[in-house]
Write a protein that binds this DNA or RNA. Structure first.
Lengths: 191, 191
DNA sequence: ACCTGAACACCGTTCAAGT
DNA sequence: ACCTGAACACCGTTCAAGT
């Protein structure tokens, strides 16, 4: 049994993959339609406009990413371990699928997409910022991470580094540069 | 005298602005044509394909950025000052024009643009990596920056941070977050 | 409930035709 | 040397029409 997904799920899955690979303006309804064997006009039955489809994808991505971080936190005790595993998620995405972070991709295209989408992207960044801040704070209270740094500020910068490193590593065909960037950032704050 | 630019230069200027704002797949020949008062088919006389136009823009951007860094180095003595001014260039681009780094933008769209363009983008990143590495090395030899860090590695990470911070700061409408990211990175390596 | 084809204004690209 | 209009296959979107 190869495919238990209904049409709506197939549309979402293919859209997600295409956005992470090529971006909002880099894929067409035909790409998806051809892939799942319907006509491009049929997609409008599920999602009237392209924006609606991408909002649905980004919303799903947002909550999936929260679940993912919760798993990482549950699996690892030490903050540095969690953050390292977090960076490895980005690295795998690039290495295995040659894809970027969905919200990073959409953020780059901000000026050519609907405001409705900006909101979801902003919430994704805010989610991740909050989660990373709490991981780092915990690392500080456990004497793993230097008390000198500001957890909130560092979380923001660490995340920006991963997003930037991902984009550049793809051009340079060096997914492992993401790991290196993470290692270096973490080495600077270890005590 | 408002406009001394010839048609070719007007095409390049408008293309540059549009790419930094909306990306390769986010602008059309019509956008440019309308702006400068010609027909979109006329642009093909100067640049047969969209790729040719964008290669020309990116090549120009690459050399302009080298000149710009040379000026920063000439104007400032201390490495930290140079790096801070470097980050301010990114911040101004976002703050004043709401634009991203041209090559950062194109790097995000890598999977939907021609390999010919990948080359130029790769060279831009390589240029900047080399320049940043030498600035940091000089800072180390002048006892301004910790000798413990690897200049080459840190240069790569610092640049990735700026690119990522720029993209996220645009969504959050906080251009000054770029300065904060830079400050934080530099604070970590100061001695 | 779900899908389709035809129509529309918009894309990049080509090219014969104009000045 | 430089520009244009018309044509083409491709976009997103709408909608009347099918099952």
């Amino acid at each position: 049994m190869a495919n238990m997904l209904n049409t709506r799920e197939q549309i979402l899955d293919n859209a997600k993959a295409l956005i992470q690979s090529r971006g909002y303006n880099g894929f067409s309804f035909r790409d998806i339609a051809t892939k799942i064997g319907i006509k491009s006009s049929s997609i409008h039955y599920y999602y009237p406009e392209k924006t609606d489809l991408v909002v649905a994808v980004a919303t799903q991505y947002r909550s999936d990413f929260i679940s993912l971080t919760e798993e990482l936190i549950a699996k690892n005790k030490k903050a540095i371990k969690i953050l390292t595993a977090y960076a490895e998620v980005f690295e795998s995405t690039l290495k295995i699928d040659n894809k970027l972070c969905l919200c990073g991709m959409l953020a780059s295209e901000m000026n050519s997409i609907e405001p409705e989408l900006h909101t979801v992207i902003g919430k994704f960044f805010s989610d991740q910022h909050k989660i990373l801040t709490s991981i780092i704070s915990k690392g500080q209270s456990q004497n793993e991470i230097s008390a000198d740094i500001n957890a909130k500020d560092f979380a923001k910068t660490y995340f920006a580094t991963l997003e930037g490193a991902m984009m550049i590593a793809r051009v340079n065909k060096r997914p492992s540069d993401i790991k290196l960037a993470s290692k270096q950032m973490l080495a600077l704050i270890c005590r």
